[in-house]
Write a protein that binds this DNA or RNA. Structure first.
Lengths: 231, 231
DNA sequence: AAAGTTGCGTCAATGGTGTTGACATAAGGG
DNA sequence: CCCTTATGTCAACACCATTGACGCAACTTT
C-alpha cells in the first residue's frame, strides 16, 4: 500500500459505503471539527473514519500517516489565522497583530496546537506566514541575518507560549483543574520559614494560573524596539 | 484497586518475581533512564515494568496513573537541574543562569520535557524553583504583583522554548530530519515573485533550524533590565 | 511461636491505538 | 463495452493504559 498512496492527481472518485466522497480537504475539515467538538481524545484514525463514514484505513490513501495528516491540519490553521493579513503600517504593530493571530489560532484548536506548534509544516500557508514575518523584521531595519534570527526568536516565543497554553487547555479537565488550583491551594500552605518569598507574594500567586503571553509579548517587542535599526 | 493504591506509608516490601524491591524512587530513576537511553517510544508502563523486572500493573501501586508518574519524573528533573543553585549576585545574572539550568535540564530529557514542560508538578522541587525565581524578581525591584507576573512571563518563555526544542528533539529521527531540512530545501526553492522576502534572505534561512532560545532569552532579559525598579 | 491481616505483585482480560496486505468493485479511458 | 486500476473495505498485528480477582508473604498481634 505504501507505494500506492497519495497520488498527485486524483481521478477516480468512488464514494464510500456511507455515500460520502472523500477529499483531502474534507478530511482536514473533519479532523479540525472533530478535534474541536470532542475533547483531547477525539483525534484518532478510527474516530475520523467513523465521522467521515469510511473505513479508517481509507485515510491512508490520502496521507502517508497520521503525522502527515497532522501537518496538513496545522497548515490549515495557519492559513485561517493569517487569512487577509497584509500589514501596512508600523512594523511593531504588525508583529503584535501577527503574534495575536498565531496565538489565537492555536488557542482555538488547543489539541492540535499541542501536537503541532513545534512542527514545520513546509506547506503553502506556512510559507506565506514566514514571508510576512521576515518582511516585518526587515522593515524594522534589521539586516538579513539579524532579521532571520529575530524572527526565529519572535515566532518561537509566540509558538512556545501558544504550545504551553494550548497543552494546558487540551489537558483532561480534572488534570487541568488540578494544575490550575495548585497556585491557589498547594502553594498557599507552604511553610513561611522554608519559602519566605512565596509566603510574601502569596496573595498574588493565583496570577501564575493565567496566561503570561501578553506580558511576555510586550516585553519581547519592547526589546526589539530598542534594537530597531541596529544590525 | 483504585482505592488501595499509593498508601502514605509503605511497610510490606515484597520483592518482585525478578528479585528487585520496588520503590517510588527506583521507578522514577528507571523511567528517567529509560526515556534517556531509548528514544521517544520507550516510556510505557509495559516497558517500564519489563525494565524493572515486575508486572506492568505493579506500578499502579505506586502511582495513580501514568500522569502521576510523569509529574513525579518531571519534579525529579527540576530537582536535578536546580540542585545547589543559590544565586547571590546580580539578579539578572541569576535569572540567566536559572533559565539555562531549566532549559538545559529539559534538553537532557526531551521526551519527558515535551510531555511535562507545561505541567505544574506541585511537588517540592518545583516549590523551591519558584521560590528562587520570585526572589530574583523581587531583587530586581519589582513589587509583588509585578514580580509574579514577570516571573510567569519569564518561566513560561523559558519553558516554552524548552518545550518547543525538546519536542523537536524527541521527534522520530526521520520526522525531525524532514522538519530541519525544510529550511535548507523546501524554503530554498520558493518562487522569487511570490516570496520576495524569503528569496532575499535565502542564504540565512538555515538559521531557522537552530534553537532561538539564547536570542529570545537575551532579548527578554534586556527588557526586564530596562524596567528594573519600576512597578 | 503461631495465627491473622493485608500490602502488593501477578495474571488475565477489556477496549483502545496506528498501520498494513489482500481483496473487491466501480469509475473512467480506450 | 471492456479493461485497468484507483481506492474503499476487511481482517489482522502489535502495541498501549487500566482494572478486578487472586494469592503469597511479610508484618502485627496474640
Amino acid at each position: 500500500m505504501a507505494a500506492g498512496r497519495v497520488p498527485v492527481e486524483r481521478r477516480r472518485r468512488r464514494p464510500t459505503k456511507a455515500g460520502t466522497v472523500l477529499t483531502e480537504e474534507l478530511i482536514v475539515d473533519c479532523a479540525l471539527r472533530l478535534a474541536g467538538e470532542h475533547g483531547a481524545e477525539a483525534l484518532s484514525v478510527r474516530r475520523l473514519g467513523a465521522a467521515l463514514g469510511c473505513d479508517p484505513s481509507a485515510l491512508y490513501r490520502y496521507f502517508h500517516d497520521t503525522d502527515d495528516l497532522l501537518l496538513a491540519v496545522a497548515d490549515r490553521i495557519i492559513g485561517e489565522t493569517m487569512g487577509g493579513f497584509a500589514p501596512e503600517g508600523d512594523w511593531l504593530a504588525g508583529l503584535r497583530e501577527m503574534a495575536h493571530r498565531v496565538y489565537g489560532g492555536y488557542s482555538r484548536h488547543p489539541k492540535i496546537a499541542a501536537l503541532a506548534a513545534y512542527r514545520v509544516t513546509r506547506r503553502p500557508h506556512e510559507f506565506r506566514a514566514v514571508e510576512i514575518g521576515i518582511g516585518l523584521m526587515r522593515r524594522g531595519g534589521f539586516d538579513k541575518a539579524t532579521a532571520v534570527r529575530h524572527y526565529a526568536a519572535f515566532i518561537d516565543t509566540v509558538l512556545g507560549h501558544a504550545a504551553l497554553d494550548a497543552a494546558h487547555q487540551a489537558l483532561a479537565p480534572e488534570r487541568r483543574g488540578a494544575d490550575t488550583r495548585a497556585w491557589a491551594e498547594a502553594y498557599q500552605v507552604l511553610s513561611e520559614g522554608e519559602f519566605p518569598q512565596l509566603a510574601e507574594v502569596r496573595g498574588e500567586l493565583p496570577l501564575m494560573a493565567v496566561s503570561s503571553f501578553e506580558t511576555a509579548l510586550e516585553l519581547f517587542l519592547s526589546a526589539l524596539e530598542v534594537r530597531a535599526g541596529q544590525g
